[in-house]
């Protein structure tokens, strides 16, 4: 439990004059579940996207699996990584999005095997067998031939999780995975995520599901206006918050 999977040191991100992240420090240990909570505009989604190189950081250092994100450090200078190198480093983490982002022109099975076959270049036969296991695991083993459009939001999100897992990532990033779902579909997605956590997957979850955070998270990080306000186990941050801003947010969300 001592290996660090994600380490952020003073990470800053701005779009022009607007500063989204104002110096984020964070440590995420391997095999733990970290929930990022906070009001909208707090920068939690942006930070999650930085971990997967979907956003460039403007200052600070961000290490994922001991690798510096976006840059190579040589002779005291930071060299921006090439597109192809960045694409490779993205393989460390799997990502699940708020709006699923399944490929609508492919069947469920084609969605899951797309990257293992066309990015990793693995033989299609092996990948299909593995994908079937993953689909069974998320409870959709019989929907391989369906198109995403024909599935409910909850089913689509479970497919998205299977698609990310097919790349055998060391880390899973979830960006508000249940926010776009109908209420009756939230539970089935959270169930899959709980199973994943129980298997020891390192997970970073941006979420508003405080009950899930309480039950599953090892670490809860409360962010507001681009800074980390409070970090700790759920029993501290959620049940006995120290900061006024955390208290104010929780009182709004829990009512």
């Amino acid at each position: 439990m001592s290996t660090v999977m994600v380490e952020a040191q003073g990470v800053r991100k701005n779009y022009g004059a607007i500063e989204i992240l104002k110096g984020i420090d964070m440590r995420i240990e391997q095999g733990t579940v970290t929930c990022l909570i906070g009001p909208s505009g707090s920068g939690k989604t942006t930070f999650l996207r930085c971990i997967n190189h979907l956003e460039k950081i403007n200052a600070g250092r961000l290490y994922v699996d001991q690798q510096l994100v976006g840059y190579t450090e040589r002779n005291g200078k930071l060299y921006e990584k090439k597109e192809s190198q960045t694409a490779k480093s993205r393989l460390t983490a799997g990502m699940v999005f708020q709006r699923f982002n399944l490929f609508p022109h492919m069947t469920v099975m084609e969605n899951v095997i797309e990257a293992p076959v066309h990015v990793l270049g693995r033989p299609k036969k092996d990948v299909i067998a593995e994908a079937q296991v993953l689909l069974d695991r998320v409870g959709l083993g019989d929907r391989g031939h369906s198109y995403p459009q024909d599935l409910s939001g909850g089913q689509q999100q479970r497919i998205a999780i299977a698609r990310a897992l097919a790349m055998k990532p060391k880390l899973m990033l979830f960006d508000e995975p249940t926010s776009a779902l109908d209420p009756e579909n939230v539970g089935e997605v959270l169930e899959v995520m709980k199973d994943l956590a129980a298997e020891g997957m390192t997970m970073v979850v941006v979420t508003h599901e405080l009950a899930f955070a309480k039950q599953v998270a090892d670490q809860v990080v409360f962010m507001d206006l681009g800074v980390v306000v409070e970090t700790g186990p759920p029993s501290e941050v959620l049940d006995a918050p120290q900061h006024e801003r955390t208290k104010a947010f929780l009182s709004k969300v829990l009512t």
């Binding site: 996207r49 997967n52 190189h53 979907l54 597109e83 192809s84 694409a87 490779k88 993205r90 393989l91 983490a93 799997g94 990502m95 999005f97 709006r99 982002n101 399944l102 490929f103 797309e114 990257a115 066309h118 990015v119 990793l120 998205a160 698609r163 990310a164 790349m167």
Partner: peptide
């Protein structure tokens, strides 16, 4: 094409050509 498709494809490690 929805911008989320770009995110999803990049997150799966695809380069620009793929």
């Amino acid at each position: 094409v929805d911008k989320g498709q770009y995110d999803a494809a990049r997150a799966l490690g695809m380069n620009r050509a793929k």
